[in-house]
Structures are given as structure tokens and as C-alpha cells.
């Protein structure tokens, strides 16, 4: 984290001792798959996040607004939305960083069915994790000793690079291949599969490679890097998908697929 020595930007109203600075024009999607943007005036505050703005609208202006959040600190992955056209986690996105002047446009995540307003149906997103065999399959029992995985091993380092995914759906929303091929597993599920493909304790490797291979799996990725660009946790699903492509090709050439 880099802290700037520059003092926070103050505006005329703040100088007079008021807590808010100016008014933010916020357009928020209302409806389901069909609907329209509705504009709200929200007071602009210091260090205000996009989630703060949505919460203000829901609590002060329109209690019927549907949205989803839980932890507010970038851990749970439930508050992702499309902010000024870009998929983002809203709890850790400061308005100052993304507002175009004094306007914000907040829409639900793309590539997922809209339940209502800003809440999307994540069922398909998580079903694809299951389809990609995103579940650990071990062979040890509780009677066995702990497995030893060295932190400096190649496999462990690869797992470390992808393991911090919070399942927010930002990568899935940002991925154009998901838009073009709705059955494509998507970056998050494939990143999960990649971390397990490097888990030396896992015994379902062949089945997992078969599950992530082919036209709707890792080979559909065009390496556009949208997922890598947008991942709020700094993960590169693209790198994991490239790794899966290599593993799968090796398995296919050996006739193990």
C-alpha cells in the first residue's frame, strides 16, 4: 500500500466545516435483464467507496434497491458490480479513483443473469467451479501423517499465485470469451482448477484435466488478459489457464485424456 503525502482533496463546502463536499450524480441500474438506469444525488465524501454510495442510496433514498454485500473489507467477494463500465469490487473501490467528474454509473456484473437491480444470480458461476473439478480430492485419511509440501517447491509457488481468489466474479464479468461462449468455464473456475492441478496431494488430476480441456475449457481462452487486468486480488488467471493448456496437451499426446 502506498500512502500519498499529499493532503486529501478538499472542496469549498468542506472548508466551511461541512462533512460532504459536492454532489455525486449516480446512475444505478433498476430492473432485471430489462430495466433502466435511475439517477440519484448522493453527497460526495472523503474516502468514500462505491459501496458506500450504493448503501447511501438504499438506506436514505430508495429502500427497494437490491444489492449484495457482506464484509465491506475485500474478503467475502460479494459486492462486485460494474462501475462506469468496468467490473470492480465496490467495497475497496474509492469514488475518487473511478468517478468521471461527479458522475458514477453502477450496473450489475456482466455475463450473469440479473436477479434484480445490482444483484446477479451467481449459480452458473459457481456451478462451473464444480464442473472444472474445483474440489480437492485427497487419498490420505485422518490416520495418516500430514503431507509435507515445501514452500519453495515449484508447485507450491504456483498454488500461492492463484489461491487468494475470493470468488467475486469480477474476472468472469470482464471476460469476453464468456460473453461469446456461454458454456466456457471462465477464468475463476480454471484458476481454481490450476491451483488444484499443482496440489501434490490431490489424486484426481487426470479427471480434472479432462474436465477443463477442450472447446469450453481452457482452450477457449484468447489470452485477452481482461481477467488478469481486473482481478482485485492481483491474480493472473490467464497464467493459470496457459499452464492448464500445457498440462492438457501433454496428457492428450500421451493418450491420457
Amino acid at each position: 500500500m502506498v500512502f500519498s503525502a499529499k493532503p486529501p482533496r478538499l472542496r469549498a463546502s468542506a472548508v466551511k466545516g461541512l462533512t460532504f463536499m459536492t454532489t455525486l450524480k449516480v446512475k444505478i441500474w433498476r430492473g432485471t435483464e430489462s430495466g433502466q438506469f435511475q439517477t440519484y444525488d448522493v453527497p460526495r465524501l472523503e474516502s468514500q467507496t462505491v459501496l458506500d454510495v450504493v448503501t447511501y442510496v438504499q438506506r436514505r433514498l430508495d429502500p427497494s434497491l437490491a444489492y449484495r454485500f457482506a464484509c465491506r473489507v475485500g474478503v467475502c467477494g460479494s459486492c462486485a458490480m460494474t462501475v462506469n463500465g468496468v467490473s470492480r469490487w465496490t467495497c475497496r473501490t474509492h469514488v475518487d479513483k473511478v468517478a468521471a467528474g461527479d458522475t458514477l454509473e453502477i450496473a450489475p456484473l456482466r455475463n450473469l443473469p440479473v436477479i434484480r437491480d445490482l444483484a446477479t444470480d451467481m449459480t452458473e458461476f459457481f456451478d462451473k467451479w464444480a464442473k472444472a473439478r474445483g474440489r480437492f480430492t485427497g487419498a490420505h485419511t485422518r490416520k495418516d501423517d500430514f503431507a509435507t509440501v515445501k514452500p519453495e517447491s515449484k508447485e507450491r509457488k504456483r498454488v500461492d499465485a492463484g489461491i487468494e481468489c475470493i470468488g467475486c466474479g469480477v474476472c468472469y464479468s470482464a471476460c469476453e470469451v464468456v460473453t461469446w461462449k456461454p458454456d466456457y468455464l471462465g477464468p475463476a473456475a480454471l484458476n481454481r482448477a490450476w491451483t488444484l492441478a499443482n496440489d501434490v496431494r490431490d489424486v484426481a488430476q487426470q479427471e480434472r484435466l479432462a474436465a477443463v480441456a477442450g472447446d469450453a475449457g481452457c482452450h477457449a481462452c484468447h489470452t485477452h488478459l481482461n481477467c488478469t487486468e481486473r482481478c482485485p486480488k492481483g491474480i493472473s488467471p490467464t497464467a493459470g489457464i496457459a499452464g492448464l493448456k500445457r498440462l492438457v496437451l501433454k496428457a492428450a499426446m500421451k493418450g491420457e485424456l
Partner: peptide, 17 residues
Amino acid sequence: MNSGASSVRTQVLLWGA
């Protein structure tokens, strides 16, 4: 993931080709 008439192995080999 089999999303057409071809087998997963064929799809992967096509990608390799």
C-alpha cells in the same frame, strides 16, 4: 468439456495443431 460432436482429446489435439 465436450461441447460438440468431437471428443475432448480431438479438441485438444486441434488446439495443439
